[in-house]
Design a protein around this nucleic acid. Structure first.
Lengths: 149, 149
DNA sequence: CGGCATCCGAATGGATACTG
DNA sequence: CAGTATCCATTCGGATGCCG
């Protein structure tokens, strides 16, 4: 069966679908629940935020890979966590697992279209992280100084 | 006093700075470390991925808010976690905390410019989550059926 | 109002050993 | 090669109670 295929062309992209960027201070906002705060988003963010998932996704963005190839590439990940992470991604329909029953066995992992579609947003976040890590680090050390300095 | 009020205008945005989107299967990639896999990115993603941080950021995106106002708006967050989350965000330079020593005391939280700059990428991720939550949910139930069905 | 301190269960994640 | 199983330390996060 086919996974609902979103826009395969994701070049220039603007964020404006429904998460508007407002204006003044609070008080005129709808008290119900903003779309960015619903459980679905939280669930996705926890996937994105776990220690290894997005590193795996970004690696697989470069092409399909075998298990130990991923293991070597990702640096620091344990066998256990790579397995668990891949299972999670597979369960969520982001990664496709292909077993070739040979000796020794061969298992290839690749992004599904859904997984591919996640790369863009995550890459943006990665770019933000790279661009602002110094600012964050400085803010931290300043904060820590104010605390126990 | 005034809370540092950042650039309200941050329009169209494309992700392409250095995290390129490649092509074929692996083998011709630089084995060093891709920019999306470095510790800085992991650290940011863990911030983004924790249970409440981004909900707070998105809420504060609508304007500065007081503590219990945030507490009521975010639904489900405990006092302890709101405090901890806000401290973390403040430490990272994403949130600004302003105390007005009145009785009863008044504390306002607002996004710093750095925090504002994070809203775009996170909103994109939120949009992805909203757009694809059904696909993920379906993939999950299918996966779970294959396991114990 | 806006916290902090304490307790405790649950989840995360690393290390190691074993397996088809 | 690609896992599974077990153990264990750390962290996360909710509940409760007290404070200025």
């Amino acid at each position: 069966m086919e996974i609902t295929r979103p826009h395969p062309q994701e070049g220039t992209q603007s964020y404006a679908s429904h998460t508007r960027v407002p204006h003044g201070d609070a008080g005129d906002i709808v008290p119900g629940h903003s779309p960015a705060a619903c459980p679905a988003v939280t669930e996705v963010l926890s996937r994105v935020g776990d220690k290894w998932s997005m590193q795996v996704v970004m690696q697989l963005g470069y092409g399909s890979m075998r298990f130990n190839q991923l293991r070597r590439e990702i640096d620091g990940i344990s066998q256990r966590m790579l397995t668990r992470t891949l299972r999670g991604l597979e369960r969520d329909g982001l990664v496709d697992r292909t077993v070739t029953p040979s000796v020794p066995p061969r298992v290839d992992y690749a992004l599904t279209p859904l997984g591919q579609s996640l790369r863009g947003p995550v890459a943006l976040l990665g770019d933000w992280a790279v661009a602002n890590r110094e600012a964050v680090a400085q803010a931290r050390s300043e904060y820590d100084l104010r605390e126990d300095g």
